[in-house]
Amino acid sequence: MSSLQAAGPGRRNLITDVPGLRVGQAHDEGARTGVTVILPDERAVAACDVRGGGPGTRETDALAAENLVEAIDAVVLSGGSVYGLAAADGVVGWLGAQGRGYGLVSAAGVPKSPVVPAAILYDLANGGDKGWGESPPYRQLGRDAVAAADRDFDLGTAGAGYGAMAGKLKGGTGSASVVAADGITIGALVCVNSFGSVIAPGGRAFWAAPFELQGEFGGLGAGPLRAGPDEWGLAKTDPKARMNTTVACVATDVALTPVQARRVAIMAQDGLARAIRPVHAPFDGDVVFALSTAQRPMGEAPDFTVTRIGALAADVLARAVARAVYEARAWPGVTAWRDLTL
């Protein structure tokens, strides 16, 4: 089995190590919120899995394998709770102007319809100026984010994770990748606004420590990890419905069907369980998307390959969660992981 072991992170250690993907981000410093867009170079097969009890999503039903549309044009992750769903409008408008989207009718004067699923997190009570009246900033933030899409992007206090909290610590946007020994590439991007804690009680060690590669989130190791019953560490003390959400996207360059992509999304959710404790609670809105850029053929053992991709995606997503918090910068009155002196 040694030939199936992961070789290590990709060159960037970002989801954009998956060929055919770019990521764009934008934020509003005054409002303490932001948007992240995952943009495939070409339309991509996608699926999603929803585990949180209070999700906020757009167009996720379109991803069901039995439905008409088998590919998407972008995925949007946004702060702003329900207001943030409007970020997808800005992305749709930009894509449509580029002539991108699903073309049910091919005729002059009939625009294509970009398919842009989205998921949001709650950052409305983080101290930013949300006095936007009837003009929330999210449509423009979505447009700015997609227009800025590139292979490199910032982690931590950036994009949709700009205003996020991870338990009692500053949350953020994280990403990671792995390239297996046979060349399969898997990446993850996550915006962590969790109720649960990403570190073990009594210290600074991340729950995701056993999966860390090359010291990417501090290199503290897994030795200090412990988990007593009902001992959650720096989880939020007063969770409320729809206020605690981790939204993520995993991707691979292997060609997947919608059914296979759905299985990868399901398996990738285990990465959140490895990195956040507790997770998938009634007041969480956890959503994981899965994308395939189809740059690499499936091969002769599809079920086993999907199993490998799903298992690797879970590990990569756990790493991305830790990187989100590790890279986050503090605000006045808000503690970042780097501020801990435990």
Score class of each variant (00 low, 15 high):
T16V: 11
L85I: 13
L95K: 02
E327Y: 04
A336G: 02
N126R: 07
G30Q: 12
L63K: 02
L155G: 07
D238N: 14
A188P: 05
Y138D: 00
L220V: 11
R308F: 11
T293Y: 07
V259K: 09
T157K: 12
P282I: 15
P278Q: 07
G103K: 12
E42H: 11
R319P: 03
T57H: 09
G215H: 10
S3I: 08
D270R: 14
A330L: 07
E300T: 13
G10R: 03
M243E: 11
S78R: 00
R274E: 03
A322P: 04
V279Y: 03
K236S: 08
V35F: 04
P297I: 15
Y102N: 02
D286C: 15
H27D: 12
L272G: 06
V50P: 01
A87C: 09
L85F: 15
F206N: 02
R22L: 13
A330V: 09
V321I: 12
I186E: 05
S175L: 08
W331D: 13
F211I: 14
G221C: 14
A149Y: 01
R263W: 07
L312F: 01
E231H: 13
L21S: 02
N244I: 09
D286M: 14
D61Y: 05
S2V: 15
Q140M: 13
V75I: 14
V288N: 00
L317D: 02
A311V: 14
A180T: 14
P210L: 09
A119F: 06
D286N: 14
V192P: 01
A222H: 02
D61C: 02
P201L: 12
G109Q: 12
L220T: 14
T252E: 02
S197H: 10
K170T: 03
L342R: 08
S78N: 02
A227F: 11
G101H: 05
V306D: 10
V23F: 07
A255L: 08
W331L: 11
G53K: 06
A273C: 10
V146Y: 06
T60N: 06
K168V: 07
A200G: 06
A205I: 04
L272D: 05
G34E: 02
R226Y: 11
L4K: 03
R204K: 15
F304C: 08
T57V: 15
P278S: 04
K130S: 04
E66H: 11
V178E: 05
D286H: 08
V69Y: 09
A166T: 04
G34H: 07
T36W: 03
A149L: 04
